[in-house]
Design a protein around this nucleic acid. Structure first.
Length: 885
DNA sequence: GTGTTGCATGGAGCA
DNA sequence: GCTCCATGCAACACT
């Protein structure tokens, strides 16, 4: 920001012993004036002193006083009279002249409709003043006056307005000692001008707020003028556009608020309606910047700059996605960004939170006879700020200079702190004063303009841009403004209720197409569960029969429908009764025993217990003791905890690295990443696809398949084979050391597995395409997620479901390649010829040295035995799932 | 095969 | 019934 220059063109002083603030600028902020000019402005003699020789002087039709018309300084000082001519402001507002006054306001605040009773029809927006800050007080007084011209006070009266409402037409309170000024965003009054019943408007007063002055020009306007320029000077009715309300419906009790109320409410975090804009469209509250005027005052007071919050937007999934297009609210784009006539738009330089400049392409697309405005090229910004859907980007402007500032607010930060003091104060206030509730109730509240404050914080660093060189805030300020949670809803029925973000806002992006990813973190957490839990709930489509497809000579079962969610059940194994399944009634919460192979719907009650006529009612007591049940559940819980910890541990331990990774890469033909290894992030080849992506690209086998045949003796293959052998020997050694422990573990796991159910009664993990019953092995290909991702095809409770994961993260195909075996041979090894349960001495677990599988899976060193779980054989179509030890 | 661009579609919100 | 806007998607460009 350059040195100050007195904005009185005939003065242009660059130094003065005291700078004063003058008239409100059309771009926001206020003119800088030297002491002399500022004093003249404050004394309302500015035009007399400096414009006396300019054109535009007229006489008041009522008192014949000379009135300068047409400059920005004199704008508030006269009125065009209905019967022609002009009147000086004191005459125009004289009693009796305008029993019902309405008119346009000149400074970007539209117009205000007031009634005789003095009710303001627009809710107040408060601005905190610092005692002694006469210049700002003057400005605000002027704002109030402009919004409330019938109550214009002579200068001598302004300082005497303590604690009293100014005039009768507007509920403004000017209290320099208290430091509060309440003023309203005036309504544009167009509805009245269009002939609506004025008195009727009292009951339902128009609360629309025009975004700006018709002739508003942005300081950064490129000069490109398009059709909007014309339209913005016309009324909505002329444009055929509806005006959208940006303020909630008014409360019937009026808006007059006590100073106490004002004081308290001023500290609330109220969405702050934008101070300006171009008037055609009106801003929806959801785009209001969430910064209080008080905060702005603090900012601008310290910075010699005026921060003009413009709007903010919660990022949608597409905004935060890789497309790099941020959809701008139309009204905001047209109000605050330069007008563009060509679809290509123009580059827009916006300062980021650290003071660096970013250039985005501001453009539009024609859409339904309208326009859709976007900022293109935001991906670097989004990524560097680590923004995601649900976060909020904020746009503001620094005046003078009109520099656009883009901040952000993380969604995760919006609800994690609480300012108890303010809450208490607010609650206290609300308990006593509810007249504002109607206004505040629907105001989008929430955290503050943290992005902006981060801008300030960032500005501590060396700046590239001069406009921010003075932006500096203490960390305490940051902390202050990070203390969110003034959000909320005031309710007359429960005035002490803590403020919460309006439900409409909170949930508006959940459920529909446009609401997919926008959830607050807590809600997301509530929806988050482990893949083990999800696996427990997955059931094959109940009434569907799989179709059998044959791929490379192997049969696969394929379901057309995705898995369904079923009720979670608990399996037990009792020596006397064998395996049992238990389910809890959703109504009475009693546990009922069920047949092992029963699949329950997500909601299930005793009355649906068709398998046990004695216990098909909630009134019948449980047949299992509470203690027994607790033991089962506890064991189940402990087991899962332990598994989870072990899983993490094993993943870390077994993470292929260094030569292993290279070896794998060699086998996989440099396509390890394509195997879908969970740890692999976005690739350059298809960066849109993340781990877990099930698109056709990501589920494709590695393209390197077949590069090296099993007989290949190239250096790479030989190295890898040698490396693999070493790996397996090492593993075997470690296994032998912990054989005893492992056996115990296995027994334990088995028991627990049964207890939790080989989910879905002993079936293998269900897979969508080629499901559990197929046992064709392709579940392993899908089961390579090991980092907690939801994997539909991996059994949560059984190690043997992950038997192919000898090398974590490798897909089945990778393993096939690694084993240097044709797929057919590999599959044979995964299958053991039919042995009946009787042959194997079922029930139980026993060890058998296989004959046909003397070369066990991936084990050149030889795993001579495999553990057989006969209990699972029943559902395996005569085959027994092998289990690598 | 992948990334980008420009438009179309349809749900949500509002009067 | 209208506008807005999140997102899908086809066509095109690029590697």
């Amino acid at each position: 920001m350059g040195p100050k220059i007195c904005m009185n063109a005939s003065c242009a002083a660059t130094s003065t012993h005291e700078w004063k603030t003058g008239w409100p600028l059309r771009s926001g902020g206020f003119a800088d004036l030297c002491h002399n000019c500022g004093s003249a402005y404050e004394d309302l003699v500015f035009c007399d002193m400096f414009h006396s020789k300019e054109t535009g002087w007229r006489e008041c039709s009522l008192c014949n006083k000379r009135v300068h018309c047409g400059c920005i300084i004199s704008k508030p000082l006269y009125k065009c009279l209905d019967f022609g001519g002009v009147g000086c402001i004191s005459c125009a507002n004289g009693p009796g002249l305008y029993p019902i006054w309405r008119g346009e306001f000149p400074n970007g605040f539209g117009s205000l409709t007031v009634n005789n009773a003095g009710d303001s029809l627009s809710p107040p927006v408060e601005k905190r003043l610092v005692t002694g800050d006469e210049g700002k007080l003057m400005q605000l007084c002027r704002i109030v006056e402009e919004a409330n011209e019938p109550n214009l006070l002579p200068k001598s009266h302004r300082g005497e307005a303590n604690g009293s409402q100014v005039g009768t037409g507007f509920s403004s309170v000017i209290q320099p000692s208290v430091g509060l000024v309440t003023f309203a965003k005036p309504d544009n009054g167009r509805q009245i001008l269009e002939g609506k019943d004025v008195q009727g408007s009292l009951a339902q007063p128009p609360l629309n707020m025009s975004l700006g002055t018709p002739n508003f020009e942005l300081p950064f306007s490129s000069g490109v003028v398009d059709g909007r320029e014309q339209s913005k000077t016309s009324s909505p009715s002329q444009q055929g556009q509806r005006s959208r309300p940006i303020l909630p419906k008014p409360m019937k009790t009026g808006l007059t608020a006590s100073s106490e109320t004002n004081k308290s409410v001023a500290q609330m975090r109220i969405a702050r309606p934008p101070t300006e804009g171009r008037g055609k469209n009106q801003l929806l509250p959801r785009y209001w910047p969430r910064i209080t005027d008080q905060e702005l005052e603090q900012l601008s007071g310290d910075l010699n700059s005026t921060i003009v919050p413009l709007f903010e937007k919660v990022l949608s999934a597409s905004d935060a996605g890789r497309i790099g297009r941020l959809v701008l609210p139309k009204a905001c784009a047209e109000a605050y960004f330069p007008p563009i006539s060509q679809s290509e738009g123009l580059p827009l330089r916006i300062q980021n939170v650290k003071g660096n400049e970013w250039t985005f392409q501001f453009r539009f697309w024609p859409n339904n006879n309208s326009r859709m405005y976007v900022l293109e090229g935001v991906t670097p910004y989004i990524q560097s700020m680590q923004l995601q859907a649900g976060d909020t980007v904020t746009f503001s402007r620094i005046d003078p200079g009109g520099k656009l500032v883009m901040g952000f607010r993380k969604a995760s930060n919006t609800e994690d702190t609480q300012d108890a003091q303010t809450s208490a104060l607010l609650s206290d206030t609300l308990s006593r004063e509810t007249s504002l509730s109607g206004v505040i109730e629907k105001l989008p509240s929430g955290s503050v303009f943290s992005g902006l404050f981060q801008t300030m914080k960032g500005s501590k660093e060396p700046h590239q841009n001069a406009s921010c060189e003075n932006l500096n805030l203490a960390d305490e300020d940051i902390a202050l403004h990070n203390s969110d949670n003034y959000r909320g809803r005031m309710n007359e029925d429960s005035p002490r209720q803590p403020m919460q973000i309006p439900e409409k806002k909170r949930t508006r992006n959940i459920g529909s197409k446009s609401k997919r990813l926008l959830m607050y973190s807590e809600e997301a957490l509530e929806l988050r569960f482990t893949w083990e839990e999800a696996q427990d709930m997955l059931r094959p489509p109940p009434s569907l029969k799989p179709s059998i497809v044959t791929i490379e000579g192997h049969d696969f079962e394929e379901y057309d429908e995705p898995p369904v969610f079923g009720k979670r059940t608990v399996y037990t194994t009792l020596p006397s009764r064998g395996r049992e399944q238990w389910a809890q009634c959703d109504d009475c919460f009693k546990w009922r025993r069920l047949p092992v192979d029963v699949l329950l719907p997500p909601k299930w009650m005793c009355s649906e217990n068709v398998w046990d006529s004695n216990r098909c009612s909630c009134s019948v007591p449980e047949e299992i003791s509470l203690k027994q049940l607790e033991n089962f559940l506890k064991a189940s819980k402990d087991f899962k905890k332990r598994r989870s910890a072990e899983s993490h541990k094993s993943v870390q331990e077994c993470e292929p690295s260094g030569l292993d990774a290279l070896a794998s890469a060699a086998f996989l033909g440099e396509n390890v990443g394509d195997t879908g290894e969970p740890s692999v992030g976005a690739t350059t080849k298809h960066p849109r696809h993340r781990p877990g992506c099930t698109c056709i690209v990501c589920i494709q086998p590695p393209s390197g398949k077949g590069k090296h045949k099993s007989t290949c003796t190239c250096n790479v293959c030989m190295t890898v084979k040698r490396r693999f052998k070493t790996l397996m020997l090492r593993k075997k050694k470690s296994q032998s050391e912990g054989a005893e422990t492992a056996q115990k573990e296995d027994d334990y796991n088995r028991d627990e597995s049964e207890m939790n159910g080989p989910s879905r009664n002993g079936h293998l993990p269900m897979i969508y395409l080629g499901n559990e019953a197929s046992h064709s092995g392709n579940q392993a290909e899908e089961a390579e997620t090991s980092n907690g991702k939801l994997d539909l095809n991996c059994h949560p409770n059984r190690d043997d479901m992950q038997l192919d994961l000898e090398v974590p993260g490798m897909s089945l195909l990778s393993l096939v390649q690694a084993a240097s075996l044709p797929l057919e041979d590999f599959m044979k090894q995964r299958r053991v010829p039919s042995l009946t349960c009787e042959q194997q001495g079922c029930p139980g677990i026993y060890t058998q040295v296989t004959e046909e599988n003397e070369r066990p899976l991936l084990n050149e060193g030889g795993l001579a035995s495999e553990v057989w779980d006969c209990e699972s054989s029943r559902d395996h179509g005569g085959y027994h799932e092998s289990k690598l030890d």
